[in-house]
Design a protein around this nucleic acid. Structure first.
Length: 555
RNA sequence: GGCAAGGUAGCUCAGCUGGUUAGAGCACAUCACUCAUAAUGAUGGGGUCGGUGGUUCAACUCCACUCCUUGCUACCA
């Protein structure tokens, strides 16, 4: 169902998360779509005066990290420490303003994971059962799906991973693969028994159905019906040693599956923030009766984890469930999946070497909706969109007014030249706020750019440059250019969640304190400005090409 | 294979519960302007809405089938 909270009074308490990046690889632009989407929402909530916290963490456990560390001859702890630094650098580079970025390999996470498990156990939601699984006899480890390769049992294609075939898209069990090989050692896997721990998800069916009814969008609910219609099954939450993670209390050879402790990272990161922030209480947000709001931003690929397993875990632990879960689609580049060989697998760090992060923030904002549709980063469109909207329309307003104002000592006129136009700009605030709230950033951007067009039309019609030539009308010219700045001022507030860095330069130019939503109604009459300096350069198509080429090689 | 979401002008996208000549931005063309980071303004050409077949007085909007893309399919993360 739709979430259309009114954002006027600024009295809401909100906790937001993005999905945890896996500590086994670099952040790429697909990741950034989600962090930028979330960051814009968090910045918007803060801008309108709500109490809002945005937390995240590295997802550090599981077989891939263990093996990756082995291959690099380092400990998993060293690997995830390196990732943590790299990830933070990328996030900072894109102005992702986390209130806390923690790790699932932390005291807090261990504590809450065990707490969740103990609650599930105490309430009889855990069952133990022996299952049969592929095992690498050389490496002495059980093999997750993605570490078994073989021929598709249906079409015979070679080198197929795990449980589905790339070439015929058949679904099967890893044990069905013909000529299976361990992707770790190359050995032929054998079947071996092991006792696993399962969460009886069926126990939560009614709770989950009720929560879904008004907790998530129709699109997500439709998807989840696949699971609910067939009937919820048991969820395997244990993995055998060797495994990098937390061992299950009382069972030293069994470990918690990474997907159990990953979302718990949201709790852990927030707890860690609370411990650093005296006025912040964990229970105010997570106790069952909390009236704070909790939102998870995720990709469409992990809907089941966040809308079935995770709420069940929270409920069993007597915590509140999320207010809602927001899912977005996948990023494509020039219409296709990001591909290393095509040079479209773009790492965050490579992008930052060549391009301004706010170009991408704006491009994402200009096209994002609240739905789970995939998102295409079309590089040509990217250049045109950013240059046209940001430089030619928005920044241009300030640029074209600044020189005439400087002639008058950088002092804005004492009167408002066209009050009705100002009013129109101000009255768009509610509509734009609602679009931000609904994550319809594309629609918000469209309204903002329509206003920018109106500002340029106004200046064109008034032609202050003509009036400035004559002593008798010079004052009128100043009034018009001042009006242009008033409009620019409001546009800057509307764009601030998307373009924090640019708007901070604007604040310097306008000589004002950090802008807030309230400032929309406070035009800078008779205000003094600083000298205007170019606020943003155009994107050069060559930069983008360089970027793509570089990426192809370095990925 | 099953389920979900998407397939609308050259490009990127809007189009609510079906209803006059299908919209926007960019790109393109012509004209105007010259204050502005060769920016801005005005006007114009351009789609029959993936395909086929239905329902209806009327469908981009409903139904069926079909093709294509992406995701999920519970021991991948």
């Amino acid at each position: 169902m739709s979430h259309s909270k009114i954002t006027k009074n600024g009295s809401r308490r909100i906790l937001i998360t993005s999905a945890l990046p896996y500590a086994n690889g670099p952040i790429h632009l697909g990741h950034m779509l989600e962090y930028i989407q979330t960051d814009i929402w968090a910045r918007f909530q803060k801008l309108v005066g709500n109490e809002c916290y945005y937390v995240c963490a590295d997802d550090t456990h599981g077989t891939p990290i263990m093996l990756s560390a082995q291959r690099q001859n380092i400990t998993p702890e060293e690997l995830i420490a390196k990732s943590h630094q790299d990830h933070l650098q990328d996030f900072n580079g894109f102005h992702i303003n986390f209130d806390n970025f923690h790790s699932t390999h932390s005291e807090e996470n261990k504590f809450y994971t065990e707490k969740v498990y103990q609650s599930l156990l105490d309430k009889g939601h855990i069952e133990r059962r022996t299952i049969n699984q592929l095992y690498d006899p050389d490496k002495h480890m059980f093999l997750p799906d993605r570490f078994v390769k073989g021929e598709c049992p249906k079409c015979g294609s070679a080198d197929q991973y795990g449980d589905n075939c790339d070439s015929c898209s058949a679904t099967y069990n890893p044990t069905d693969l013909k000529n299976p090989k361990s992707a770790v050692s190359g050995a032929t896997p054998i079947l071996k028994d092991s006792e696993h721990f399962f969460v009886k998800l069926q126990d939560f069916e009614n709770i989950l159905k009720n929560w879904l009814k008004d907790g998530v969008s129709q699109q997500i609910e439709n998807k989840l019906n696949e699971w609910l219609d067939v009937g919820l099954q048991q969820w395997d939450i244990s993995r055998d040693a060797p495994y990098f993670g937390y061992s299950i209390p009382g069972h030293p050879d069994k470990f918690f599956y990474v997907w159990l402790d990953a979302p718990i990272g949201y709790l852990a990161s927030f707890k860690n923030l609370c411990d650093k922030t005296p006025e912040l209480e964990f229970d105010d947000f997570w106790k069952k009766s909390s009236d704070a709001e909790v939102y998870h931003f995720i990709g469409k690929d992990i809907i089941n984890f966040h809308c079935l397993f995770w709420p069940a875990c929270l409920h069993a632990t007597d915590y509140r469930m999320p207010t809602s879960v927001f899912a977005h689609g996948f990023l494509t580049v020039n219409g296709t999946k990001m591909s290393k060989s095509k040079g479209t697998f773009i790492k965050a760090s490579t992008y930052l070497e060549n391009l301004n992060p706010e170009y991408l923030r704006y491009y994402f904002a200009a096209k994002l909706s609240g739905k789970i549709d995939d998102f295409d980063l079309n590089l040509e469109d990217f250049v045109q969109r950013v240059n046209s909207d940001l430089v030619n329309k928005y920044v241009n307003i300030a640029s074209r007014c600044a020189k005439l104002i400087k002639k008058s000592g950088n002092q804005l006129h004492a009167s408002i030249d066209k009050p009705m136009l100002l009013k129109e700009f101000q009255q768009s605030a509610d509509k734009i706020a609602q679009f931000y709230e609904d994550r319809e950033y594309g629609k918000a951007s469209k309204v903002i750019m329509q206003l920018a067009d109106k500002a340029n039309i106004y200046i064109d019609e008034q032609a202050p440059w003509k009036l400035a030539k004559d002593e008798s009308t010079a004052d009128q010219a100043l009034a018009i250019c001042s009006m242009g700045i008033h409009l620019f001022h409001i546009l800057s507030i509307y764009l601030k969640p998307v373009l924090p860095q640019l708007v901070s330069q604007v604040e310097n130019f306008l000589k004002v304190d950090p802008l807030s939503w309230q400032d929309i109604s406070k035009p800078l009459v008779s205000h003094e400005l600083n000298d205007f300096k170019p606020l943003m350069k155009r994107v050069e198509p060559a930069q983008v090409e360089k970027n793509a080429n570089q990426l192809g090689r370095s990925a």
